Simulated assay, not measured.
Amino acid sequence: MMRPLLPLTAVALATAALAAGCGGDDGGTATVLKDGDVVGMQNLRFKPEHVQVAVGQKITWRNDENIGHDVKADSGAKFASDTFNKDGTYSFTPTAAGTIKYECTLHPGMDGTIDVVAK
């Protein structure tokens, strides 16, 4: 008696989808921010979670939720906001190229990455 191939087919399709980038934001591809773009805070996530900016380009986070958030650099820079509520914002301007990892200290797992590139 032959076994159905459905489980193997499902695994193969899922693997192919992830390899093609269909598995959500894995932190690998940065969204290039233009002047005036903001990083939103929605559903306990940064939207987008991984961004790219140029040295000297201001990054602004906006709280789109009815709960407080903050933004604190973990590595690659030094910044830390106070807690801010819905529609509140916080901005930071990087002065050197590199990678910045940051988080909302109020919500474990709410973290993001900034790739700062030379102009």
Rank of each mutant, 00 (worst) to 15 (best):
M1E: 12
M2A: 14
R3I: 10
R3K: 13
R3G: 09
L5W: 11
L8R: 13
T9M: 14
T9G: 11
T9Q: 15
A10V: 13
V11T: 12
A12Q: 10
A12S: 14
L13V: 14
A14Q: 09
A16F: 00
A17G: 07
A17W: 03
A17K: 01
A20R: 00
C22D: 11
C22E: 12
G24W: 09
D25A: 09
G28M: 11
T29I: 11
A30K: 06
T31P: 03
V32K: 14
L33E: 05
L33K: 03
K34W: 02
D35N: 12
D35Y: 03
D37Y: 00
D37A: 02
V38G: 02
V39P: 03
V39I: 15
G40H: 08
G40P: 00
M41T: 03
M41W: 00
M41D: 00
Q42D: 09
L44N: 14
L44W: 13
F46K: 03
P48F: 09
E49C: 11
E49W: 09
H50W: 05
V51P: 04
Q52C: 08
Q52T: 13
V53L: 02
A54S: 13
A54G: 08
G56A: 07
G56K: 06
G56L: 02
G56F: 02
Q57L: 07
I59Y: 03
I59F: 06
T60Q: 07
T60M: 01
T60R: 06
T60A: 00
W61F: 13
W61E: 02
R62T: 15
R62Y: 01
N63Y: 04
N63G: 02
N63M: 05
D64Q: 14
D64E: 14
E65C: 10
N66A: 15
N66Y: 15
I67M: 15
I67W: 15
I67C: 09
I67T: 15
G68Q: 10
G68E: 08
G68N: 11
H69L: 10
H69C: 13
K72F: 07
K72T: 15
K72C: 09
D74H: 08
D74Q: 15
G76E: 04
G76Q: 05
A77M: 03
A77Q: 04
K78H: 07
K78L: 09
K78C: 03
S81D: 02
D82V: 14
F84H: 02
K86E: 13
K86T: 11
G88W: 06
T89M: 01
Y90K: 05
S91Y: 08
F92I: 05
T93A: 05
P94K: 06
P94A: 08
A97I: 00
G98V: 06
E103Y: 13
T105A: 11
L106M: 12
H107E: 10
P108N: 09
G109A: 05
G109K: 07
G109T: 05
M110K: 07
M110L: 10
M110D: 10
D111M: 09
G112F: 06
T113P: 01
I114R: 01
I114Q: 01
D115R: 13
D115Y: 10
A118Q: 13
K119T: 08
